[in-house]
Simulated scan of single mutants.
Amino acid sequence: MKAAITGGTGFIGKVLTHDLMKANHEVIILTRNPDKYTSTDRVRYVKWMSDGANPVPDLEGIDAFINLAGESINSGRWTEERKKRIFDSRMKATDEVLRIIRSLNKKPGVLINASAIGIYPPDLNRTYTEESTDKGDDFLAETVKKWEQKASGAEMDGVRTVFTRFGIILGKDSGALPKIAMPYKMFAGGKVGSGEQWMSWIHIQDVVSAVQFCMEHDQMSGPVNLTAPHPLRMNEFGKILGDVLNRPHWLPAPAFALKLALGEMSILVLEGQKVMPEKLQNNGYSFHFATLERALADIYKR
């Protein structure tokens, strides 16, 4: 298959590109700075969303469009300016993806659009699946709702559309794990906030494998939760992380201190949702790393 990826030079995009090429798929990465990268016979870098860009001819014949573009939500305090950049980057990139799809003579078979489990309201007791209709009302939930609504425009062009609602993605050098693990490596790890909030996590390898699964299986459409089948409360997550790193789990990080340090962004660590990957499981996806112990053992090669 031939797949186009936006955000292909980011955390998820790099691993996904590697795995797609390994599976003998052809990859086209849309980037503002294609000259920074070297194209090969398996991966090409094409200019988009910048002066002089005209990616449409290069994208004729693609089978899948994977939209991962958007400013990171966890790389800085959520000032009003930063929240605007987080929101606008997703809306503008998705507008351009839809424009490209409508300009192609042959539409791709599927659009896989990034999303997040932050669309669900934080709750200590409820369990969410793709059938859950409750939506949150905070900044992240509103952003995700509008992002999915925007991307759903591809359905009007007859393109199967999947919203991959990412959980907390675990990888050694990128994503949330390095920041979560840092206090433990300094012998200062412990309960975060109440410790009762849910951590619906997923290994980076399962993220990219599940994206490919959605790309290759026509029955996958609409929201798809990309989370491991065994979510944990934060305190249990921390204990397991401490055990894997051979570090103590003892020093609490109180909620008021995190709110003071992180502001509104503190919801990423103080609040959570128990989210199950019902669609993936019901359609035959087999997780590489179903438990946190296995996932962390792989990441840290223990």
Rank of each mutant, 00 (worst) to 15 (best):
E71S: 11
D58H: 15
D51C: 07
L140G: 05
T143K: 10
S115N: 06
T40K: 06
G118L: 05
D63W: 01
T31L: 02
K22P: 08
L140Y: 07
D138E: 07
Y120A: 06
R99E: 01
K106R: 15
P55C: 02
S50F: 05
V46K: 00
R90K: 10
F65N: 01
K83R: 10
L124P: 05
D123Q: 03
V15R: 15
P108S: 05
L140N: 08
R77V: 11
I100S: 02
S72W: 01
L59A: 11
I101E: 12
L111E: 05
E142V: 15
I62C: 02
T79I: 11
V56W: 02
R77W: 02
D137M: 12
D41E: 15
W78T: 05
F65C: 03
E81N: 15
P55A: 06
A116V: 09
Y45L: 07
S39I: 00
L98F: 00
N74H: 10
A69T: 03
P57K: 05
V15I: 14
A116C: 11
T79H: 04
I86C: 03
E131D: 15
N54L: 12
D95C: 07
K83Q: 10
T129R: 13
E26C: 02
D95S: 09
E130N: 10
R99N: 13
M21Q: 12
T38R: 13
S132Y: 01
G109S: 13
L98H: 00
K83M: 08
K107N: 08
L30W: 00
E80C: 07
V97P: 04
R32D: 01
D63H: 09
S39W: 00
P108K: 06
K36L: 12
I112L: 15
R44N: 06
I28T: 12
V144P: 05
A93I: 01
R77K: 12
I101P: 05
M21K: 14
K107Q: 08
S50R: 12
N54H: 11
K106G: 06
T127W: 01
T38V: 13
D95M: 09
L68K: 01
N67M: 02
T40G: 02
L16P: 04
D35C: 09
T38L: 11
L140F: 06
Y120Q: 07
I28F: 10
S115H: 10
